[in-house]
Design a protein around this nucleic acid. Structure first.
Length: 608
DNA sequence: GCCGTTTTCGGCCCGACTGTTTTCAGTCG
């Protein structure tokens, strides 16, 4: 089994926790945490990098010690230092740390004084009163821990962004209705950075100083609130019925830039930014930028002026990982990120002919409403019996209808199909039929349990087909519902490049597929990315914002995206045989090919 | 443990809130 970056990141995250237990220096703990978070955001696999003789010490935050431990883990499957730490500490400390409200000190106290190593053991100790009797504990603390344990059981982990965004927007509307004096109210945090899953919803807003705490008072009274975690003058945290935590902060209009920046994170980005600021004689917090020499505080109304004050260009929230975006910003090398407005077409749409819910005409109208120059209708192929896939005859009939409809609409209608990649890598229509289509999206919908080698070869075989334009939602994952299929992403992307096949960034918020790190690698390898919505309903075309967010997190500019090509060049692309069509993609002559300087300095972004 | 446009040694981000405390430790983000 290949070793994933996530696995290595978890190891170092655990090491940080164990060092914290041991009472080791916070800087060492932070070094492991930083390394773990960096590793989880890398676009390439560490295992592959070691095979390619890459020096891991070139990765920011990874030095000699962590590089050696990574190699040790890849070679032997274990890390001695980790095992020694585990051996030194009481059983169960890592388990107890997963309970909110229990940190390293409390976990150590509980395991040492009470010999408890399980969540169930803690519950028992709370009911028996032994937990509350510990030093610096008490009945209220014990009750809070019990509540946290109960809410852990009703909700597991993070919320997919689509769901979290809907909850955030509903909460913002409810607060606005009750507090008309709130001027700006935005989701910050991981939602604003468009991470695929959201830990909790951070809301940041502007209100007159004497009314700021009142917004928190309104929040705790909302009917959707299940539990109040924190309710102070500046900060309020609640848990909603959905099990999602909402943190609310209000600030002054003239210092809103600092507040929005502070609560947009990521934590690693902010740590790096504050280190950068310290080296230049400034200290940062949510209220402004303090000049350490004079003590003067600059209050900055928006993020653009905040970064500018530090001598940096605006760094888009999607880039604030804490990896290398600060270096790029200082070097003037930040990408001019792709935007929704750059998209010229949608290449993956379904109608009621297969498993969509709307007539073809409604889907065409929706594409026109997006301002597109072209669209491809891509209903399912015949193998998708469950999705009412089109037989050969129905596909021919549909093509005829689409050509007849063309004259009625101010958009180029392309004949397409989302054709099944069968278990052996063959496609679900005969070659002659596929050759008649303008756009073929080839996707896996079955036999998802194949081993990595089989699945990789299966998809590569589909890429080698001359008619396949795009590989659709390659991993087939459904966030928090279905795990991705196993494949070698590096091999897939290299094959995509060699065959001249584009990879889809599927915008459906439950898919977000490719994911950001894979899209990042695709861009690095020169693989065209197609941002599609896979809409099964006319209202879903707006979900492109999720796909655009993935592309932005992957540092994509307009020129990296296939469906930002203007119509004439897109037609030339699909009419040129693979793999030579890549030459058209790379020599594009539209304005997207020339990098313009970002002007998005002053305006606060639209939510999130 | 990592790192350098003052440094290869001596630094390392910052504040809110809670609960248990008579002044603050622990946790979180």
């Amino acid at each position: 089994m290949p070793v994933t970056n996530e696995e290595i990141a978890e190891l170092f995250e655990s090491m940080a926790t164990l060092l914290e237990m041991k009472g080791d220096t916070v800087f060492k703990i932070r070094a492991y945490q930083r390394a773990a978070r960096t590793i989880s955001h890398l676009s390439f696999s560490l295992e592959q990098a070691i095979r390619d003789d890459v020096d891991l010490k070139n990765i920011p935050g990874i030095g000699k010690a962590i590089s050696e431990k990574t190699q040790e883990y890849l070679e032997t499957g274990r890390v001695r230092a980790y095992e020694e730490l585990i051996g030194e500490l009481p059983d169960g400390v890592l388990t107890l740390m997963t309970i909110p409200g229990i940190g390293s000190k409390t976990a150590m106290l509980i395991t040492q004084e009470l010999g408890i190593s399980t969540v169930e053991g803690i519950e028992k100790a709370i009911h028996e009163g032994t937990l509350a009797a510990l030093p610096r504990m008490g009945q209220r603390t014990a009750d809070n821990i019990l509540r946290h344990i109960q809410s852990m059981r009703t909700k597991d982990g993070r919320t997919p962004i689509g769901q979290a965004l809907a909850v955030a927007e509903a909460t913002v509307s409810a607060l606005r209705a009750e507090c008309p004096y709130v001027e700006q109210l935005y989701p910050a945090g991981s939602l604003r950075r468009w991470e695929e899953t959201i830990g909790d919803i951070d809301l940041v807003g502007v209100a007159p100083e004497d009314l700021q705490s009142g917004v928190g008072d309104v929040l705790v009274e909302l009917p959707s609130v299940q539990e109040v975690l924190v309710h102070g003058p500046r900060k309020t945290s609640v848990v909603l019925e959905e099990g999602i935590q909402v943190d609310l902060r209000l600030g002054d209009a003239d210092a809103f830039g600092a507040m929005l920046q502070y609560f947009s994170g990521s934590q690693q980005h902010n740590i790096r930014l504050r280190e950068y600021a310290n080296r230049r004689g400034f200290s940062l917090n949510e209220y402004g930028i303090t000049n350490l020499a004079s003590g003067d505080v600059a209050r900055l109304p928006d993020e653009g002026s905040f970064y500018e004050y530090l001598g940096l260009p605006y760094i888009a929230p999607e880039l604030r990982i804490g990896l290398n975006e600060l270096d790029a910003a200082q070097a003037g090398a930040l990408p001019n990120l792709v935007t929704e407005a750059d998209l010229k077409g949608d290449l993956h749409l379904h109608s009621e002919w297969s498993d969509g819910r709307d007539p073809i005409e409604r889907m065409i109208e929706a594409a026109v409403e997006q301002g597109y120059q072209y669209m491809a209708l891509t209903d399912h192929s015949s193998g998708r019996g469950i999705a009412n896939g089109l037989s050969n005859e129905r596909l021919v009939e549909q093509m005829g209808i689409l050509r007849d409809l063309q004259s009625q609409y101010p958009i180029t209608i392309l004949c397409g199909s989302e054709v099944d990649i069968r278990a052996d890598g063959t496609l679900d229509y005969p070659d002659e039929l596929l050759a008649e289509l303008d756009v073929v999206v080839a996707s896996v919908h079955s036999a998802m349990g194949q081993d990595s080698d089989t699945m990789t070869q299966r998809i590569i075989r589909a890429m080698e087909h001359p008619s396949v334009t795009i590989i659709g939602h390659a991993s087939t994952r459904l966030l928090s519902r279905r795990q991705p299929v196993q494949f070698d992403i590096e091999a897939l992307l290299r094959a995509a490049r060699e065959t001249g096949t584009a990879m889809e960034v599927n915008s459906a918020p439950e898919r977000m597929d490719l994911k950001d790190t894979h899209a990042h690698r695709a861009r690095e390898l020169g693989v065209p990315l197609a941002i599609n919505t896979d809409s099964h309903h006319f209202t879903s075309l707006g979900q492109r914002r999720f796909g655009v967010a993935i592309a932005r997190r992957a540092w994509c500019e307009s020129r990296h995206i296939l469906n930002t090509l203007p119509l004439d060049q897109f037609l030339a692309y699909i009419r040129t045989p693979k793999p030579h069509r890549l030459e058209i993609f790379e020599s594009r002559t539209d304005s997207a090919a020339t990098v313009t300087t970002s002007t998005s300095f002053s305006n606060p972004p639209a939510a999130p």
